[in-house]
């Protein structure tokens, strides 16, 4: 009884019908989530992580792009601050998602807000913001139900496929160049992001500086390349502001529409 009450304390009131609607809306995306999870799981083990460590990372970190991005850093024992900052940079898009959808969650107790935020990945955010874009009410059991229906499908598909990938990755020989798989998977995240001139300029500058500074100590070239790329992208955008999305909600849905997964 007590345990059930504690568990319920983590969830807001949920409308059952909307919850089932959320399940049904996310279900077709389960295939794409599973492919991505499978690739991430295989890549983690092939980069040299043990199976238990890879499963621990999957269950706790719960952010596919960041997990893949830090693999080459973990494999070479890069300094921890570099590992964390790299994951932070990759995850900064979630800050925009949180700012864009906060109005539906701010009235909840802090532990419910924290759990909802933790589960607010790319696809869940995209579905949620599209479904309730024109809803004048913010923070209803209907919205929370829809959110948790989608979040549950996303979590189960991601965790299930990642763990299958981790177990499969343990079976394959590591000299197949499968660590290349991690870079190919990240490529699938980056390419849809590069759909406007400012970000294309930023990415090109980042690429050139990242390669030129690869010998810098403690992988500091990585951070330098990102700072320069972001500065160039912001500069190019300010030179040609027409056609760019403005305001946090527009920017967030623009990012979510790029079709990123996790």
């Amino acid at each position: 009884m007590h345990r059930l009450a504690t568990f319920k304390g983590l969830l807001p009131p949920i409308d059952r019908q909307a919850y089932h609607e959320g399940l049904r809306a996310m279900a077709p995306l389960g295939v794409a989530i599973s492919v991505w999870g499978l690739v991430t799981g295989v890549a983690m083990v092939n980069s040299g992580l043990s199976i238990p460590m890879a499963i621990l990372i999957t269950l706790t970190v719960f952010a596919g792009s960041a997990q893949l991005a830090v693999l080459p850093l973990l494999a070479t024992s890069a300094p921890l601050p570099i590992v964390w900052v790299t994951a932070l940079l990759v995850n900064l898009r979630f800050v925009i998602f949180a700012a864009a959808s906060r109005k539906s969650f701010v009235m909840l107790p802090w532990q419910q807000r924290m759990l909802a935020g933790y589960l607010n990945g790319d696809l869940g955010f995209a579905l949620f913001s599209r479904r309730f874009a024109d809803d004048p009410q913010r923070g209803t059991p209907e919205q929370w139900g829809y959110f948790y229906g989608g979040a549950l499908v996303n979590w189960v598909a991601w965790m299930g496929s990642s763990i299958v990938g981790i177990l499969l990755g343990g079976l394959a020989p590591t000299d197949w160049g499968l660590e290349l798989g991690a870079y190919l998977a990240l490529l699938a995240v980056v390419i849809p992001m590069v759909h406007r001139v400012p970000v294309a300029a930023g990415v090109l500058v980042t690429a050139a500086i990242a390669v030129a500074t690869v010998h810098f100590p403690m992988r500091l070239g990585l951070l330098l390349a990102v700072l320069a790329g972001v500065a160039v992208a912001v500069g190019v955008e300010s030179m040609r502001p027409e056609g760019q999305p403005h305001g946090v909600v527009a920017v967030a849905s623009d990012i979510a529409d790029e079709g990123e997964v996790m």
């Binding site: 792009s65 690429a207 972001v230 990012i255």
Partner: peptide, 9 residues
């Protein structure tokens, strides 16, 4: 907005 694409690149 631009940091994730640059970091992954």
């Amino acid at each position: 907005r631009y940091a994730p694409a640059c970091a992954l690149t």
